[in-house]
Every structure is written in C-alpha cells, then in structure tokens.
Amino acid sequence: NKASVVANQLIPINTALTLIMMKAEVVTPMGIPAEEIPKLVGMQVNRAVPLGTTLMPDKVKNYE
C-alpha cells in the first residue's frame, strides 16, 4: 500500500505548504502520493484542510 499526503495540522485556505504541515500515511481513498511532498512545498491550498485530512489534487492550486 502506498502512502498519501495527510495534513499534520489545520492548513488555512491559501496557505503555502511546508514540510512540517504534511505527513505520509496509508489512507483510503488515496490522495496525492507521499513521494510528491517535496514538489508540494510552496504550493498553496485552495481551501482549508483540517488536521488528519488527506490532501487530494483538487485541494492544491496548480497541482498536476
């Protein structure tokens, strides 16, 4: 099972992601793969992401 990116804290809307905000966890359904964490640093979320929520591609601005 592959790990996904999960919010390590509440991430407010329009916040630029940092390493400390994210952790890798095996979750269902799968979100953004954990190996993409370095790519996500500096990207902004387009909505608030509660603690423990899986980061889905549609929650990150300009994620492809």
Rank of each mutant, 00 (worst) to 15 (best):
A16Q: 12
V26D: 07
M21A: 03
N14E: 08
T53V: 11
V5F: 06
I32A: 02
D58L: 05
N46W: 12
T28Y: 14
E25C: 15
N14I: 06
T18G: 04
N46S: 11
T15S: 09
N8Y: 07
V49M: 09
I20L: 13
P12Q: 08
K59E: 15
P33M: 06
V41F: 00
A3L: 09
E36M: 14
P29I: 08
M43V: 04
A16V: 14
V60I: 14
V5C: 07
K2C: 15
K39W: 13
N14D: 12
V49K: 04
L55R: 03
N8H: 06
T28D: 14
T15Q: 07
P50E: 11
P50D: 08
V45W: 00
E25F: 09
L19Y: 11
A7D: 01
A24G: 10
L19E: 09
T54Y: 05
T53A: 15
L10K: 07
V60C: 05
I20E: 12
K2E: 10
D58G: 09
M30Q: 12
P50Y: 08
V45M: 03
M30C: 14
Y63V: 04
V26Q: 09
T18N: 03
M22N: 00
Q44T: 13
E25T: 09
G31F: 02
A34P: 03
L55T: 01
T28C: 15
K23H: 06
P50G: 08
P38C: 13
Q44R: 14
V60M: 05
R47F: 11
V6G: 02
I13H: 06
Q9G: 03
L17Q: 00
I13T: 10
T54H: 01
V26G: 04
I13N: 10
Q9N: 04
A48T: 15
L51W: 11
E64T: 14
R47V: 15
E36N: 10
T53M: 13
V6D: 02
M30S: 12
E25L: 14
M30V: 11
L55E: 02
N14C: 14
P57W: 15
M43I: 04
P38M: 09
T53N: 08
M22S: 01
P50F: 08
K23V: 10
L19A: 09
V5R: 01
A16W: 13
P38R: 09
A7F: 03
V41S: 00
I37C: 08
P29A: 05
G42W: 06
N1G: 14
T53D: 14
L40P: 03
A16S: 12
Q44S: 10
G52S: 04
T28G: 02
V6F: 06
I20W: 11
I37V: 02
M30L: 12
V6E: 00
I13K: 14
T53W: 09
A16G: 07
L19N: 06
I32C: 05
P33S: 10
I20H: 12
N62R: 08
A16P: 14
P33F: 06
K59Y: 15
T54G: 03
G42C: 08
I13Q: 11
L17F: 06
K39T: 11
N62V: 03
V60S: 04
G42Q: 03
M22L: 10
Q44W: 09
L19W: 11
E25G: 10
R47D: 15
V41Y: 01
V5N: 03
Q44D: 03
K2P: 12
K39P: 02
A3N: 05
T54F: 06
P38I: 09
L17W: 03
P57G: 07
I32Q: 00
I32H: 03
V60T: 00
N46G: 06
V26E: 08
E25P: 03
V5G: 01
L10R: 10
A48K: 09
P50W: 08
N46T: 14
D58E: 10
Y63I: 03
D58Y: 14
I32P: 01
M30G: 09
E35C: 15
P38Q: 09
E25W: 10
P57Q: 04
Y63M: 01
K2S: 12
A16D: 10
I20M: 14
N46M: 11
A3E: 10
P57V: 04
E64A: 13
P29M: 06
I37M: 12
I11E: 00
T54P: 07
T53L: 05
P50M: 09
I32S: 02
T18A: 09
P29Y: 07
V5E: 00
L40T: 03
I11T: 03
I20G: 12
Q44K: 11
V26Y: 13
L55N: 00
V49S: 02
Q9K: 09
